[in-house]
Structures are given as structure tokens and as C-alpha cells.
Amino acid sequence: MSQSTMMRPPVPPDVVAPLKAPRSGRGRSQRAVAAWMLTPAAVLGTVFLLVPIALTFVLAFTNARLVSPEPMKFVGFDNFTRLFSDGTFWTSLANTVIFTIVVVPVQAGLALGLALLINVKMRGVNFFRTVYFLPVVTSMVVISMLWLFIYQPNGLLNGLLAKIGVHGPDWLSDTRTALGAIILMSIWQNVGFHMVIWLSGLQTISPSLYEASSLVGATTWQQFRFITWPGLRQTRTFILITITIAAFGLFTQVNIMTQGGPLDHTSTVVYQAVHTGFAQQQTAYASAISLVFFVIVLAVSLVQRYLTRDKDVAR
């Protein structure tokens, strides 16, 4: 498998060697160029991302409210004490985690299946690819409204099920199906995007590998298992990270379709933060929720990065 060296994926970010240590003089100029090339992003990032994050951090330790004549004051860890004894928060966190744990593998798997289906030479494959991709370019606000029609008790989905003799549930109001319904429509909306990412990965796998393996009589499954799957390792990392980010941020669908119900079964951390901060005017408490959320996702992404880096080294 001499190809494996050619197919070596790019080295992970942290070990990339920038241009070799430059000759004297160019070092300073590199620093200067780097400084001004970074400036626009740094300024915008600081103003619109880091400052709000810092504000969230400060607000979380106050009693700030959205609408109030009282001056804001610091209250220490009060908001956190309240948060950790708030059942809705733990439910929301659990829902967010469940959503992520289900969506990441299922969406990635379905996307890979779709990618394999359209990574063939057949008439109409462009059309199929386009249709599978349509939901991605449609606004989530619009899609959430459409899916309300699909999920309502006498709606499109149950009408379809009735044709095959199944009496469908009230999808969004039944505690047993609500989160699943949200998961399904979220995957439906997003799977096309990751299909394309997988497709890109598939297209970099050398055809000679498949030819060689055919010569030695490998089955399709063996080809997938020993050529396709290993060849997609980099793509897997990318997909894992992008789906995880999107899944943790689950908000729009919930806000439009269920408002966290029934009985908190679709409440998520981001939904709870927005609802508390805006509708309930409890800015400080919402900031505490956000802050805890930052810490959790940061931890998750560090773990993910650690795991993916580990594999790189292992190679």
C-alpha cells in the first residue's frame, strides 16, 4: 500500500510548521505583516465575540435584569446555586446531550450512505444530489413551520402512516416522540451538507486501491471496511466536529415548534438561556446558564480534539 504515504492527510493544525525560520530581517517583517493581516479579524472578533463573552462572564455574578429600575449589583455565586438546583436546567442539559449523541452518529451515518448513493456514475445523479441538498439551503425558520404541518396530529406524516394502517401519534406533544421528532427534522435539514463533505472525502480515495482489491477478490463490504473507511479518517474528524457544534447549539427548531415542551422533553440549554434571558427578563441568570454551557462545550471540544490528535500520533 505505497499509496498510504501519498494519501497522508494534512498534519493537524498544531503541528503545522510555518515557514522555516527566516533569515534575519524577514522575522521582523513577518511579525509586522502577520500583525496587520490579523488586525481586522482580531478587532472584529474581540468586539463582537470576546467582549460579549466577557460580559456574559461578569453578568453571571450579578442580579442584572433586562427590565428593572434597580441598579445592578454583584451577588456572588447565587445564580449558580440556583442553576444547579434547577430541574429544568438538568433536563435541558440532558436533552442537549441526548440530541448530540443521537444526531452525531446518525446524521454522519446517513450522510455517508447518501454520499455513497450519489458517488456513482448514473443518469440523474446530479438531480438526486441537488434534491438531497435542498433543505440545507432553506431557512430553518421556514423549515420549522413546514414541519409543524408534517407533525400535527392530522398532518402530512400521520396521513401517510394512515395509508399503511398505522395510527400515528401527536408527534410534537407526546413526551415519547417529541425529542425524536425534533431530531428527525434536524437531521433531515442538515444531512445534505454532510453528504457533500463525505462525497469530497470519497473522491480523494485512489481508485487504484479499489482496482487492486478487486483483483484479489475483495467483496464490496471488505472494500468499504479496508479502503473506504480508513481513507475517510480526516473527513470523519471534520464531520464529527461540525455536527457536534451544530447539535449543541440547538435552538431555532425548538423555539418555533415546541418551546421546550411537552414537559421539558425538548428543552435545550440554549433555548433555556434565551427564554430565561429574554421572555423572563432574568439576564443574569441567563448569563449563568450560558457560562456553564461554554464550560461544558469547551470541555467536550477539548476532549474531541485530544482524541483526534491521539489518532494522528498513533499513525
Binding site: 465575540l49 463573552i53 456574559t56 449543541f248 440554549v270 438561556a273 439576564t283 441567563a286 448569563s287 450560558s290
Partner: peptide
């Protein structure tokens, strides 16, 4: 690290 911050939670600040 900032990759993972959803916009919604920063909207108010």
C-alpha cells in the same frame, strides 16, 4: 475555542 459558542446566547450582551 470560540468555534462552539452559539450566537443566540451572546445576543443579549
Amino acid at each position: 475555542a470560540t468555534l462552539i459558542v452559539p450566537f443566540e446566547v451572546l445576543a443579549l450582551p
